Computed example of a mutant assay.
Amino acid sequence: MEDSRTVLEALAIAVSAGVPTLLWGSPGTGKTSAVVALAESLNWPIEVVIGSIREPSDFAGLPVVSDGMVRLTPPAWAHRLATAGHGLLFLDELTTAPPAVQAAMLRVVLERVVGDVRLPDKVQVVAAANPPEEAADGWDLAPPLANRLVHLNWPVDGRQIARGLAVGFPTPSLTGFAQPPPPEQVLEARATVAAFLEVRPALALQVPSGGNLTGNGTAALPGDGASRAGGGQGWPSPRSWEAAAKLMAACKAAGAPPEVLDVLVAGAVGEGAALEFLSWLEHLDLPDPVAVLADPDAFELPRRGDRAFAVLTSVVAVAVAAGDVERWDAAWKVIAKAARTAPDVATLAARTLAGRRPPGARIPAALLELTPILRSAGLLGD
């Protein structure tokens, strides 16, 4: 089981990355206190909205006729957050909210819209929930709502509670807030996830079936909090893989330890898919794309197909994010070298790079060298 410091750091990084997060844990274990402490550490306003005492109109807006038009008036908490321009929206007791209220919450989590008001981008969403079997009149989360959240299991350790009572409980780490990930790191992380899904395309989408499957498609065990039944926790989809890439970039920018990345990826795509991805990532051993662009003549394409795909897509992502002629030209040199042994992978990278030509760039010599190689491989028309 993860310790509370790992989960607190994971929570802070997820908030900094703008990824909605859900803390799972038993009642009375300090989930709400941790989220409030995070808001206080950031000096952010926080609005606590308890799902069990709300109606769908508290999220969809209350219809009001004004000047011959029907407007959806949002509640006061949404107005306060919109006026502040930043803050935490804390959706507490999520599993005690009935399905109709969960459906209304869905738009808030996905589109950040409450009634006719859109919450600012700097308002982040955090939720907390008790396992349905421990909640009064508990409901499983619907798979669409679960898929929009990163799920973190809130640990309970008797010794940590004893220390907390004696000397104070740990406050959430602010790692990741000072240095948000630059665009090239986000693109590099997306390229890495894409390379994995090239190898394991079956994990791109695994919708929970019948409410009794875990995130990796296997049967859930009753009472198993780590693989809670139904769509109640993370499962693989294009949306959750994109969230995993954002969290990877945020972890790299923050210098977070590996265990923090582990719990965040598992919380996004489910434990089964995360186990495969993290194991693959551990053995990937990719060169730094920035270093490759700095010395493209020294680059050697990895022989493994997944590594070749990952390094080429990462190199192109960094070159595109930089937007300068020098790195755009260097990326073409890398692709030209790759085309001699892996023309199919090089073609995919070349198409992306060609569509993002920076101002002032001329057709590089490497591209002219690349053309006959691709044509002989049957990847270009006459």
Rank of each mutant, 00 (worst) to 15 (best):
R5A: 13
R5Y: 03
T6H: 11
A10N: 00
A14I: 05
A14G: 09
A17Y: 10
P20L: 02
P20Y: 04
L23W: 06
W24V: 05
W24I: 04
G30S: 11
G30F: 05
G30D: 05
K31F: 05
S33T: 15
V35W: 00
V35P: 06
A37V: 09
A37K: 13
A39N: 00
S41K: 06
P45E: 15
P45S: 00
E47L: 02
I50G: 12
I53W: 09
S57D: 13
F59D: 03
L62R: 12
V65M: 02
S66Y: 11
L72H: 12
A76I: 13
A76Y: 05
W77K: 00
G87P: 08
F90P: 07
L91I: 07
P98G: 08
P99T: 09
A100E: 14
L106N: 10
V109M: 03
V109K: 05
E111I: 10
V123A: 02
A128G: 14
A129T: 01
E133A: 14
E134R: 09
E134C: 06
A136W: 11
D137M: 08
G138V: 10
A142P: 05
L145Y: 07
L149F: 02
W154M: 06
W154F: 02
V156R: 03
G158N: 14
R159K: 14
R159M: 10
L165C: 06
G168H: 01
F169V: 11
F169Q: 03
F169W: 00
P170E: 11
P170V: 05
P170M: 11
T175M: 13
A178N: 14
T192C: 11
T192L: 10
L197P: 09
E198C: 01
L203Y: 11
A204V: 04
S209C: 06
A219M: 10
P222T: 07
G223M: 07
A229W: 04
W235M: 11
W241N: 03
A243T: 03
A245V: 01
A245Q: 07
A245W: 08
A249W: 01
A250C: 05
L261T: 01
L261W: 03
V269E: 07
E271D: 11
A274T: 03
S279Y: 07
S279C: 08
A291K: 15
D295A: 13
D295L: 05
P296Q: 13
D297I: 06
E300Q: 15
E300K: 15
R303T: 14
R304F: 05
R304G: 15
R304A: 13
D306Q: 11
A308N: 03
A308C: 12
F309L: 15
V311R: 01
V315K: 07
A321T: 06
A322Q: 14
A322G: 10
E326L: 13
E326H: 15
D329E: 15
A330G: 01
K333I: 06
K333H: 10
K333P: 04
V334F: 07
A336K: 04
A336F: 10
A336E: 12
K337L: 12
A339T: 02
R340G: 00
V345F: 06
A346H: 10
L348T: 06
A349E: 01
A350F: 09
A354D: 05
R356V: 13
P358D: 03
G360T: 04
P364S: 10
P364R: 02
A365Q: 12
A366K: 04
A366S: 12
I373K: 07
L374P: 09
A377L: 02
L379K: 07
L380D: 12
D382I: 04
D382A: 13
D382G: 06
